[in-house]
Nucleic acid binder design. Structure first.
Lengths: 207, 207
DNA sequence: AATTATTAATTGATCGATCAGTAAGGGAGG
DNA sequence: CCTCCCTTACTGATCGATCAATTAATAATT
């Protein structure tokens, strides 16, 4: 009574992962049942156990494969990044960050981390890894430009909050929470605000 | 077999609400069982139904009573706020915002909203109300100071993101997610960074 | 003041529903 | 006919919710 599938079973596993991720992000771990995931993926609940040994491991796998990499987005693909003008590089970084946060994948993982991070610290690690990979490139750059007097002396982590924070706040309140008042605040407006204001006084040589 | 309690039952209801809120914020709605809440409050699960008709309504009541008011914290208790110098008022507002976000209550509600907001949009309303109450005071002030040329012309919502965003990002990544790398970034450092940089170039008359 | 009735607060026992996970097997393709 | 992929059917555990029973405190009656 179990007809072999019409669509190639090669991507069945992937379908399940994607369905799972969508539901986990939407409703949270506990509120998402195996039956929900299976229905969304077009199979029955028992089929999940052909591909994954438990719901918990399905969850972890789905979240792990969510790792969209922030680094290549934030650090432009040029050779000598370390020597780039901050007036050029920082707006590029800014746009990279906003693109990253605008992705449904990023928003999904942010929601999952907030909701399930307490239960499973391994989930938080995924976020941390993203940050660290960027930090390892950007912080040396900032320190160098500070030493050169091109960027105001300041803890790089604080700089990072000042650039990344407004975007994170916007995405959370506007996109994730969906507060109506903020719906027509565009990413462009935020980038412009940060460039004109925060970056403007962060860069000490605005010639 | 159920003796009437020796300790005054006057605050029993409150005890339950507080226990519930703590657990809901920590583990989320579905992962928190009635038995958990009851144990934490020193009663049995059945007792919850003497005070609340359902788990769902216990949850809503707990969250509703969480409303800590942002407004009195952000807008200082002075008569003529509208005429205050932005150099004086904005740092005050900044400190108010950071105090607000540092409260366990605020962090709890932020976690709950992110985790359960999808399931129950009424929860998101609580956050929205907080924002609106502040917006109604701060936005007219900003517009007035912009007209006077004391503050750079900019959408007040963008200004709000630029001031509030870094704090929100810091609290989420440092306090809620607990990322080790950020543990020793103090609120003071962030306030200083925003004042020296973002506010510095937002205020067009830095005499 | 003593006795009795009533109400408030809580328990233990239990029920129905739901859910993660298991077992066994069937059909399609090689 | 064997292996892969998936189903139907089931189980044990858990959870929200209900309920009768029970007692402390309080009010009413004697």
């Amino acid at each position: 009574m179990a007809p072999r599938p019409k669509n190639p079973p090669a991507d069945r596993r992937q379908e399940i992962l994607e369905a799972a991720l969508r539901l986990f992000a939407q409703r949270g771990y506990n509120a998402t049942t195996n039956a929900d995931i299976a229905r969304e993926a077009g199979v029955t609940a028992a089929a999940l156990y052909y591909y994954f040994p438990s719901k918990e491991l399905l969850f972890r796998t789905a979240v792990s494969e969510l790792r969209s990499s922030l680094l290549p987005r934030v650090v432009p693909m040029v050779e000598r990044v370390m020597d780039m003008d901050p007036e050029i590089l920082l707006p590029k970084v800014l746009r990279g960050v906003i693109d990253f946060f605008s992705e449904p994948r990023t928003q999904a993982i942010l929601k999952i981390i907030m909701a399930e991070g307490q239960r499973d610290p391994a989930i938080v690690k995924i976020w941390e890894e993203q940050m660290v990979s960027v930090v390892e490139v950007i912080f040396p750059y900032l320190l160098r430009q500070m030493a050169r007097g091109r960027v105001k002396q300041m803890d790089p982590r604080v700089v990072s909050f000042m650039v990344q924070g407004p975007i994170m706040a916007a995405v959370i309140t506007r996109d994730i929470l969906g507060i109506p008042m903020l719906q027509d605040v565009t990413n462009e407006m935020i980038v412009q605000g940060i460039v004109e204001t925060t970056l403007a006084s962060l860069l000490t040589n605005p010639e």
